[in-house]
């Protein structure tokens, strides 16, 4: 609350100027918007044309399965081998959810704390930037040496990949101080804690959702990458294994599952943001 007694400056834009985090909220909360039945029909038609076209072309040119399997073969592999892939999906989800939960929690708490101390924030920010920009995958071989081939190195890598991403976006959110709104709360005698929960946190919420979404997608990438590096389970491990055995339909089936996982994550945070932070859109 260092600046509470400064000259009130209402012209200061409450959205923190141009310094929006990694992604912009308008891309998340506003989203593609509600689609009409006609638009949905056309989107489905495009899918049918592309998939059907690929099927026909691959068939017509006699492309061998080990180069590029036909969509029907991929779909068939997905059905017949799903029981083989499912446990690995479970492993990946365990790593993703536990790693992300740890990373996001630490990231959120750190963001909330350091924004209260501008000096600390200035000192810490470059290091967080370093964590965001360094691919955490690079640490996985090291983590495997230390923690073995189990869950631990992967969970740590996911936490390290998603945490800073959540933190940097949440920091941007918490920094969007609207001095007039804080003054409003203070005029009713609000405590620092009340100002945090009733003003700062809701104002930061849209950026927090951006951070959670980007962080979880980064977490997914890192989980799959870590699984490819070492260990005998997880969807990433299936990718290396299937490709080494030239089981291309199964390989692409796993890729398809990963895409669905990514879209699912996006949808979850899109809907959460729409429900709890749509006031800004």
């Amino acid at each position: 609350m260092a600046s509470s007694d400064a000259i009130p400056d209402f012209k200061q834009s409450p959205d923190g100027g141009g310094e929006v985090g990694v992604a912009n909220m308008s891309g998340l909360a506003a989203g593609p918007g509600i689609k009409s039945a006609r638009e949905v029909a056309i989107i489905a038609l495009v899918a049918v044309l592309v998939i059907g076209g690929a099927e026909l072309l691959l068939l017509a040119f006699g492309v061998p399965q080990y180069v590029l399997p036909r969509p029907s073969e991929i779909a068939w592999a997905l059905v017949t081998d799903f029981h083989l892939i499912a446990p690995h999906l479970g492993h990946t989800l365990v790593e993703l959810i536990s790693g992300f939960t740890i990373g996001a929690t630490v990231g959120l708490i750190l963001a909330a704390v350091i924004t209260q101390f501008p000096f600390a924030e200035k000192i810490i920010t470059p290091y967080i930037l370093l964590l965001v920009t360094t691919p955490m995958l690079a640490l996985v071989p090291l983590l495997i040496l230390r923690f073995g081939f189990g869950y631990e190195p992967r969970i740590i890598a996911v936490a390290l990949a998603s945490g800073p991403m959540v933190m940097i976006n949440a920091t941007t959110g918490f920094r969007r101080v609207d001095s007039a709104k804080i003054a409003l709360a203070r005029s009713y005698g609000a405590s620092t804690l009340q100002i945090f929960w009733k003003i700062r946190a809701p104002m930061a919420l849209p950026m927090i959702f951006v951070g959670l979404m980007v962080g979880s997608i980064f977490g997914l990438l890192t989980a799959v990458g870590a699984e490819m590096v070492g260990g005998g389970f997880g969807l990433g491990n299936r990718l290396t294994s299937y490709s080494s055995m030239i089981q291309m339909p199964q390989f692409f089936a796993v890729v398809l599952i990963l895409s669905f996982l990514g879209i699912l994550i996006y949808m979850i945070f899109f809907l959460l943001a729409k429900r709890y932070a749509s006031w800004e859109a």
Partner: peptide
């Protein structure tokens, strides 16, 4: 003592 601020100052959420 109660205060009315410039620009309404409502909480948009």
């Amino acid at each position: 003592i109660s205060m009315v601020f410039q620009d309404a100052n409502l909480l948009p959420w």
